[in-house]
Design a protein around this nucleic acid. Sequence first.
DNA 1: TGTCATTTTAAACGGGTGTTTGATATTAGA
DNA 2: TCTAATATCAAACACCCGTTTAAAATGACA
Lengths: 208, 208
Amino acid sequence: MDTKTRILNAAELLFADKGFSGTSLREITSIAEVNLAAVNYHFGSKKELIKALMKRYLDVLAPSLITSLSDILENTDKPSLEQVFSAFVEPLLSLNKLHENGTSNFLQLLGHSYTDSQGFLRWFITNNYPGIIDNFTAAVHKAYPELTSEDIFWRLHFTMGTAVFTMSSTEALIDIASNDFGLKLDVADVIKRIIPYVAAGVGAPIAR
Amino acid sequence: MDTKTRILNAAELLFADKGFSGTSLREITSIAEVNLAAVNYHFGSKKELIKALMKRYLDVLAPSLITSLSDILENTDKPSLEQVFSAFVEPLLSLNKLHENGTSNFLQLLGHSYTDSQGFLRWFITNNYPGIIDNFTAAVHKAYPELTSEDIFWRLHFTMGTAVFTMSSTEALIDIASNDFGLKLDVADVIKRIIPYVAAGVGAPIAR
DNA sequence: TGTCATTTTAAACGGGTGTTTGATATTAGA
DNA sequence: TCTAATATCAAACACCCGTTTAAAATGACA
């Protein structure tokens, strides 16, 4: 495996676990078993490394998500919200083929990108992949036309919070679930539990 | 104002904004206008400072939240989920009396505490304030008896995710909302928007 | 095989980190 | 007023940070 990839893999592992400002380049290069200077040689800076890391996932996820959502928009007259959210499942889970724990790692990174580093990554994401948000908004609107775009904006962010937060503590939650309820769960199970929840949340009656 | 309080206030401001690992003691003591060594003198370490900061809020919030939830448990035969979640509003908003932007600051801190610092704060909270979780679980059970304790476990964490994530990016969201929809919002508005969402989420039909 | 671009390396750079020290003020009680 | 505890202070400590440098190793191609 080439140096660039080894750095990305190690960075993914550590960033997902400890956040961006909580992870040093020395930890990354040590785990990747490459020289410290390799990060700056191949990526330019720590910030650029973070961007490249997100890009590796978003370049796969974004088109797949847009296709999946467009499919609903074009072929379903009035989709249910469950259908809309189910459109996320396959694209998200397919990240596991791209990489071990890909789904969970990506969602954890997404979570960190909203709190860490003064939001420069949030800017990067929303400005580079607007198609996702547009398609999602359109699909939700079709499923629940009474929602204003403002309602959708808020409920979309609530939904992101649910997903991101849950995923960034999935390991712990799966542990607890197995101790307290004697169940063996994986990421796919958790995602399937989330869907009815967020679908009902987004579909909640509008209080005015 | 005494040194201890000035440190806590400055730390609250900076930690809420930039996270724990993103904020240095030198920034804190500079804004608090106290000597650098004062933090270690009064609190022992940075970690202890963080704990003291959370304690300042949790000592007020926890009893008030437990009272509010017990009230529902004792005086309502079958509360609605909206009622259960509304029990959080007054205690949370009362943090604004304790401190300017108290509610928002506290919730942002809570958000950071779940991603920063390897979850030691999550441990601290769940081990120091279990009454909240017990009361909440009981109240939800009364409102929706068909939910198994496992269902409640998951949906409670989804709900925490929604709240914590939203609050830790409230500033950004309020910014976007004001740019895109020309609306001026504050924390109280956001909280009121969350309630129907999470109530519907927790109240979602059980897929088996 | 020799040349030249690419990649890797150890070392250093300047600066920031949390924490500790020991001296100096400040305060409160006898 | 003197004393003893409490609090503040500048300075230093040892260490970690992201980045840069210049030399050494490696690779591709003529």
